Structure formats: C-alpha cells, structure tokens
Amino acid sequence: MAIQWFPGHMNSTKKAIVDRLPDIDVVIELLDARLPGSSANPLLAELTAGKPALKLLNKQDLADAELTALWLAHYQAQPGTNALALDASETAPARQLIPACRALAPLRGGMVKPLRVLICGIPNVGKSTLINTLAGQRAALTGDEPGITKLEQKIVLANDFYLFDTPGMLWPRITVEHSGYHLAASGGIGRNAYDEHEVALALLASVRPRYAERLQARYALGELSTLSDEELLADIGRKRGGLMAGGRVNLQKAAELAINDFRSGAWGRITLETPDEFSTWWAAGQALDAERQARRERRQRSRGRQLPTGHGDSG
C-alpha cells in the first residue's frame, strides 16, 4: 500500500517557498540521517534548482556512522552542495552551518548584502530544535508530532545572516514505496496516514539484512534467518509483553513496540538505506510513475475517440 500525507497547509508552504526564493542565497535542507534519501524532498529539489545547497543530516547519533559517511560523500559530490552531519540539540555542531553557508555564497555578507538562508525539511525532522539551538532561545515551536510549525519565521543569527524557517513539507505523491514506509517509521508522516502493522513489517525487512544481531540482542531471539517478517514481529510481541488472553500475540502492540524502539534508538545506530539502494528505488519508482502516466493518457485518448451517445441523426 502506498503511503501519502499532504495536509492542506503544505500547499501554502510550497507557495511561501516559491515567493521567498528569489531573495534567497543558500538553501538548507534538513534530512534524517537514518533515511537521507527518503527524507530529501524531490519537490524542494525542483523548486530550488540552481541555488547553493547545504544538506544537514540530523539525528546522526541514531544513524550508522559508516553509512552517514557514505551519504555525506554522496551529497558533497554534487555541484554547489555541501553536507554536514549533526545532532540538532548540540550547539557546536549546529553553529558549523553558519560558516558552511558563507562558503557557499562568498559574495554575500556584511550589512549591505546580508546572507539570506532558507531552511526546509520534512515534518518532524528536527528543524525547530535546530533553530532554537542556533538562536539560543525558544525561537520555534518543537514537538514529537509532524506539522508543528505552520508559518514562515525569520531568525537573525548574526547582523548579516538571516535565516528563514518554513513549515515542514512533504510532496504530494510519494512514488518510492520504501520511502513511504521509512518516513512513516521515522515519524515524518502523520499517524492517520498509515497502518502501523504494515509499516513495522516493512521496517523489519529493511533492518534485518544489516542489523539482524541488533534485533537478536534487543529481544533475546535466536537465529532470524528462518523467520518471516511476520513471525519476527510476533516474536517481538511475545518478548515485550504483547500477549493477549490465550497466549495470542497482539500484533498491533508488537508493531508499536518495534516502531518506537527504532525511533528511540533502542536497536542501536541504524540507517535504513544507502545512496546506491535509494538510487535503485528512485529509478524504479520513476519508471512505475511513467507507466501510470502513460496508461492515464491512453485512457484519455480512448475516451476522446469514443463517439457521443444519444445524439443520433434527426429528421
């Protein structure tokens, strides 16, 4: 099942970004270091094409350090782009973004030509926490639910450094199935947009190939290779108090436990995708999207060729 979540305020966010962009020198995109490809907004990439970009991989303390290094190299190889990994609540790493932005726009700076930076990201990726860390005060609302920020904000980080914050924004249609599941597992999509049981199964399928031993250690499990994802989820429920009357497993509770353990870092430092994996998924998603579009156009042409009924010759 495809996962989609695009509340109405996201349309106004898109318009606010489009209106603001002509005055912007650098675009910061805050990503989730556990799913950098899936948390990168293709709509934002389209809107901000040609602008110097800084990719910030947040929650790096929850991500696999080796794969974070791969993702940083991936983004740093792109023209006009730099990338940093950080934890949004830590001041020293967060302050690195200021010189990084200045390096991307060396002709801007000083009171006559202040540097104007737009910061964007998906919901619940930690953008408000980062802004509060940078500003040294509660400049932005924070919370553990996506969609907290609803209005654009301007934050002055230095006399000649203006940061424009926008609400978290997804894109209208998620064409990469893995991305939908990874976003839901990370908390980037509203709870009413997905089924937790289905997301937990997809999450386990993503985690098992690289981190099976983490799951074994967390839940005191034996060999996992003979278990299906459904059986593994059931075993998690048994180990973590998800039993109902008669010894049956409450799979809904087991799914919630698995998702919460991933989000909290109880499985250790986990990254759900590599640059190569995401590139493969993206290409497959684009191909499927092109097929859907071609079928839609064929249906429209077919309807256009049909003669109207109920309009026979008269007289």
Rank of each mutant, 00 (worst) to 15 (best):
M1F: 09
A2N: 13
A2G: 02
G8V: 07
H9Q: 12
N11Y: 11
T13Q: 06
K14F: 08
K15G: 06
V18I: 15
D19H: 12
L21I: 13
D23K: 12
I24C: 10
I28P: 00
L30C: 07
D32S: 06
G37P: 01
S38A: 15
S38C: 07
A40E: 09
P42V: 05
L44T: 03
E46C: 07
L47K: 04
T48Q: 05
K51V: 04
P52I: 08
D61A: 09
L62G: 01
A63P: 03
A63G: 05
T68M: 07
W71K: 03
L72D: 05
H74D: 12
T81E: 12
N82A: 14
L84I: 14
L86K: 02
A88M: 04
A88P: 02
S89Y: 02
S89P: 00
P93H: 09
L97M: 15
I98W: 03
P99Q: 08
R102A: 03
R102C: 03
A103I: 01
L104W: 00
L104I: 05
A105Q: 04
A105N: 07
L107A: 12
R108K: 15
G109W: 03
G110D: 04
I119K: 00
I119W: 00
G121E: 02
I122Y: 01
N124A: 10
N124E: 08
N124R: 06
T129L: 07
L130N: 03
L130W: 03
G136I: 07
L141G: 12
G143N: 08
E145G: 03
K150Q: 15
A158I: 08
N159P: 00
D160L: 11
Y162A: 12
Y162L: 14
F164W: 14
F164E: 06
D165P: 06
G168L: 06
M169G: 04
I174E: 06
H182F: 07
L183C: 12
L183Y: 05
A184K: 01
A185R: 00
S186H: 02
S186C: 13
S186G: 11
R191M: 09
N192W: 05
A193S: 15
A202I: 00
L204K: 06
V207R: 02
P209S: 11
A212D: 13
E213V: 10
L215A: 04
L215V: 13
L215C: 09
A217S: 15
R218M: 09
Y219D: 08
A220D: 14
A220P: 02
L224Q: 08
T226I: 10
L227K: 11
L227S: 07
S228Y: 08
E231Y: 10
A234L: 09
G237K: 03
K239S: 14
G241L: 10
L243H: 06
M244K: 15
L251I: 07
D261I: 00
F262N: 00
G265Q: 09
W267N: 04
I270H: 01
P275Q: 09
P275H: 10
T280M: 10
L288E: 15
L288H: 14
D289N: 13
Q293Y: 10
A294L: 13
R295P: 00
R295D: 13
E297D: 14
R299I: 08
R301D: 13
R305S: 14
D313A: 14
D313H: 14
S314M: 10
G315L: 12
